[in-house]
């Protein structure tokens, strides 16, 4: 929570009227949200509400049926995932998806690949300073790391890609609370350095404690937008997750 409400900032990411379908099942219908530069936004909602699908479509990883995505003043609706990453919209997928046979260091270099096809070794030191345990294991194959370390590596892969907006999709999935706090604190500190964060998280209170703005999704739509502080402990949240419906 920021002590002072931030001054109005330029819009970095804007999703309008996004529709996504898998085959005949329309999963997202008309999602809309906005992230400003340097803002920490969290997108909450029950499983199956369409959060991950929205993120995948936004990053160009799956097709969109309709809608518009703008990032840093450019229309990226039709852009390739590669161009989207190069523009600075970097997504860390759910479920610590690292490249098992490659070493930790090679995983990190893959993170720099979009901008520097030969791999940007100069950026490694910064990451190792941030995550010393990665430095210790730089030569180990990623498959030998624990689940929590793999998730840290996945987030590190996102950070080393020099994002203007870092998207984290459920970094907590299946991890111990300490690791989760660690990852979310790193995200928050990145945010203070000017990187915008879009976080999808099921640990609602942890997410809200760090976010500026919160969006709530339900059955493929964004149904609520509010400053994160207002939502913390509110009935709407409890209703969304443990019963009843947001109206």
């Amino acid at each position: 929570m920021n002590a002072f409400p931030p001054a109005p900032r330029e819009t970095l990411l804007e999703i309008e009227d996004l529709h996504v379908a898998y085959g005949r099942a329309v999963v997202v219908h008309g999602a809309a949200l906005r992230v400003r530069a340097g803002e920490f936004v969290t997108l909450l909602g029950r499983n199956g509400a369409g959060k991950s699908t929205t993120l995948h479509a936004m990053s160009g990883l799956i097709g969109k049926r309709a809608g518009r995505v703008r990032f840093a003043g450019q229309d990226i609706t039709q852009s390739s995932p590669r161009d989207i990453v190069r523009a600075g919209l970097v997504q860390v997928l759910e479920g610590h998806r690292v490249f098992g046979p490659l070493s930790v260091e090679d995983n990190l270099l893959i993170g720099t690949y979009a901008r520097t096809p030969r791999g940007d070794r100069a950026r490694l030191d910064g990451i190792y300073a941030l995550f010393p345990e990665m430095a210790e294991r730089r030569r180990q194959p990623a498959s030998r790391l624990s689940g929590g370390q793999q998730q840290i590596l996945a987030v590190a892969q996102g950070i080393i890609a020099q994002p203007r907006l870092l998207v984290l999709d459920e970094p907590s999935g299946g991890l111990a609370p300490l690791v989760v706090d660690r990852i979310l604190d790193v995200a928050a500190s990145l945010c203070r350095d000017g990187v915008a964060i879009l976080l999808v998280e099921q640990l609602v209170e942890k997410a809200l404690a760090r976010a500026d703005t919160c969006y709530l999704m339900e059955t493929g739509r964004v149904v609520h937008e509010a400053p994160a502080a207002d939502l913390l402990g509110s009935d709407i949240l409890h209703a969304t997750y443990l019963g009843g419906h947001v109206t």
């Binding site: 990053s59 990883l61 995932p81 990453v85 690292v98 490249f99 490659l102 893959i110 690949y113 979009a114």
Partner: peptide
């Protein structure tokens, strides 16, 4: 190798 391990994740990392 990254693609052979997880093509979707490679795409998310900006691999064409």
């Amino acid at each position: 190798i990254a693609m052979s391990e997880d093509s979707f994740a490679a795409r998310a990392r900006g691999v064409a």
